[in-house]
Design a protein around this nucleic acid. Structure first.
Lengths: 218, 218
DNA sequence: GGCCGTATACTCGCCTACGAGTAATCGGTG
DNA sequence: CACCGATTACTCGTAGGCGAGTATACGGCC
């Protein structure tokens, strides 16, 4: 379903989007991304940037315009987007918007092995996460409000989306914490017993099999 | 903040978790992951699996136990987890649970370049996404309910988390659709005009600069 | 008992990602 | 006006990710 892209790195999408406005050289692209806050804690991977631009060129999605050197500075190659590049940008965007894909967030990976921790420790760590999350959310909300004064909201929807999703995460964590503290979560007692005694609780004995949770119907 | 892991691939986490139960050979690890539905549309990357196991061994987190061949089948190397491996598993899990990290979901990337589409098309695509998302959610809910009858809920929290987050996404998309259809979204008119006439609306003229949205305070 | 489809169990090699290095220029300061 | 740190603008090397291929074994069926 999700088509194979000639250049798969999402950085390529940002590059194409930057070049659609006007031709630029790679470093300027990076500057634009940084200025627009597109990097947000992704401190721009220089290696990837140049690889990605080179690959885009190889596939005819961008083309070198001029390779001028001002003074005796290192040569700067300016790229423009091609028709194929425009088409790819639009098509890729369509796919990203229309096709929901199951991703593998790191927190989910952590949750899936939560059992290796003792329940009480898990509880502490989740509390810690919630605190930090709420801090980040407050900061994000403030930043968003600041931007909203300068720029129409259409330009800020990704940020709003992010906020909404992380908000939901916070809510969910709060719910889980609740079930853990009240002991309402089924299986909690066995989990605790297992970590205290080291023995697999009898209720779980038959789950340790290869077929644990059964084979998914695909 | 987020420590550098000797083996960074999240597949390594799953491998360690599988080996903590008992020693296995790589193919069996894959089988276990598949049986537990850990793969879920990530059709197990064989190349990565063996690279990851080799790297884990190189860093002393797992160790080869036996390298027996039954009959004349290709040699199977069975690995066990080491003390260092256990420590890494626990430490990594702690980090994943306690430290919320800003991720870059593909949908967010799509939203950030949504402007390259005409507003009406964006609307259609978002509707499409919502439909598909709701379908997937229904399927996931059904699968979860099925599992919940066989396994205590502690084992299903990742799935519940995923459900909650995607649910929030659906809600958010519904909200956005609403603002787009009623025309309530500020900037929508300009966006539409821009796509119809091809000219950048005067209100946005000064945004096209390098400093668009201003430089984030870091 | 021979054939074939499916499961088992990897190996190989290319391509990509990205960190760390390099080198010139510019702006400010004492 | 010499020096230093920041900024501009890349280059290079390597480690890791992953698809596609390979080869054997097993079970069922005619």
């Amino acid at each position: 379903m999700a088509k194979r892209r000639p250049v798969g790195n999402l950085l390529a999408l940002a590059v194409l989007a930057a070049l659609v406005e006007r031709p630029r050289h790679p470093y300027e692209i990076a500057a634009v991304l940084r200025a627009r806050g597109k990097d947000q804690d992704m401190p721009i991977k220089w290696g990837s940037l140049y690889t990605v631009v080179a690959n885009l060129e190889r596939h005819g999605l961008v083309a070198a315009v001029e390779s001028a050197r001002q003074g005796r500075r290192p040569e700067r190659t300016v790229y423009r987007i091609t028709e194929a590049g425009r088409a790819e940008l639009v098509d890729w965007t369509r796919e990203l918007v229309a096709v929901p894909e199951r991703e593998q967030p790191r927190f989910e990976a952590g949750l899936s092995v939560l059992g290796v921790l003792a329940p009480d420790e898990a509880l502490d760590l989740l509390r810690l996460r919630l605190d930090r999350l709420e801090g980040q959310l407050a900061a994000q909300r403030a930043a968003l409000a600041g931007h909203a004064r300068e720029v129409p909201r259409v330009f800020l929807i990704e940020a709003e989306y992010d906020l909404a999703v992380r908000q939901a995460e916070a809510t969910w964590v709060r719910g889980l914490l609740d079930e853990l503290t009240t002991g309402a979560l089924p299986g909690l007692a066995e989990w605790r017993a297992w970590h205290e005694t080291g023995a697999v609780p009898p209720e779980w004995a038959d789950l340790a099999d290869l077929t644990e949770r059964g084979t998914e119907p695909h």
